[in-house]
């Protein structure tokens, strides 16, 4: 046990995590409230979930959101991985400073600016606002998050593996798919998941970039929240939280299993 792990440290962690999780827990608990008042407990009920699934507008929005998230996360993962490769492997080319800037700036750029600027671009080139424009907007900001996640894995990557493959005559493209990609795969997968949830969550950029017929779930939730807090929205939020939590837990279990398998392989290799 670390001697500096004091009571103060434990207290601050416990309080910090209580602060982080209590609001979410309360939200979930009150989605099972029988009373229509969100803050007064009136007994256990799942009726809000039933009424949720009969809310056609909400269901349509959910379907749009999932399609946008699937497409944008997949494209963003490809582009973000390429960008990460550029950041770590191509240290000298013209315009590198600009490129680094364009990858990191969207991470902190206020969403209202990104949203407005993308909308004005779509109007300027005459693209009708809808499914496509929301997807393009989501690809653009989430690819930068993917790039950062993958880049940190590439930086800790043992380059001698790649060099060995190239020395043995493997062309760079083949080296990438046979050596680099399998090693960075966990980072690429978590980059995809991050892009997926970013797209699932986004309200501001989607509001700017979307048009009629492409209302996403956060836009729908937002317009209902403005009218007041309802248990039905709590139920919708609970389902979203559950999907994300299951996804993250599944990913961490898979990661842990891969880790165990890798360690077993290494031990077997040493013994053999």
């Amino acid at each position: 046990m670390n001697p500096t792990w004091t009571r103060f440290n434990i207290t601050s962690i416990v309080l910090g995590f209580a602060f982080l999780y209590l609001p979410i827990v309360l939200l979930v608990v009150f989605s099972f409230n029988a009373s229509k008042l969100v803050t007064v407990w009136g007994g256990f009920s799942t009726k809000w979930y039933a009424s949720l699934f009969q809310n056609q507008g909400l269901m349509d929005a959910a379907w749009v959101t999932i399609r946008v998230a699937l497409v944008s996360a997949s494209v963003a993962t490809v582009l973000g991985t390429l960008a990460a490769l550029v950041l770590t492997r191509y240290t000298r080319f013209r315009g590198r400073v600009l490129f680094t800037g364009m990858v990191f700036a969207p991470l902190v750029m206020p969403e209202v600016i990104t949203g407005l600027s993308l909308l004005l671009l779509f109007v300027a080139v005459g693209l009708d606002r809808g499914f496509l424009t929301v997807t393009l907007a989501h690809i653009t900001f989430s690819m930068c998050f993917v790039a950062v996640v993958v880049q940190s894995r590439l930086l800790s990557f043992d380059r001698s593996l790649e060099e060995a493959a190239m020395d043995l005559g493997a062309p760079p493209v083949k080296t990438f798919f046979q050596i680099t990609l399998p090693v960075i795969a966990p980072a690429v997968i978590s980059g995809w998941m991050l892009a997926f949830t970013l797209s699932l969550d986004d309200l501001v950029i989607a509001s700017f970039a979307s048009g009629p017929g492409a209302t996403t779930l956060p836009m729908k939730i937002y317009s209902q929240v403005r009218l007041g807090v309802t248990p039905e929205i709590n139920a919708a939020c609970t389902i979203l939280i559950a999907i994300v939590a299951i996804g993250v837990l599944a990913a961490s279990v898979v990661n842990k299993q891969r880790e165990v398998q890798r360690r077993r392989d290494e031990q077997a290799a040493q013994r053999g």
Binding site: F17, L20, Y21, P23, I24, L26, L27, F30, V38, T39, L194, T197, L200, D201, L203, P218, I221, Y222, V225, V229, I233, C237, L240, I241, V244, A245, V248, S252
Partner: peptide, 24 residues
């Protein structure tokens, strides 16, 4: 570390919304 990151994965909008019911 995982516990700190996990709330980041849940929707920003939902986390802000949760505070309305608390602070009213």
């Amino acid at each position: 570390l995982m516990l700190v990151i996990l709330p980041f994965w849940t929707s920003f909008l939902i986390r802000v919304y949760a505070w309305i019911g608390i602070l009213k």
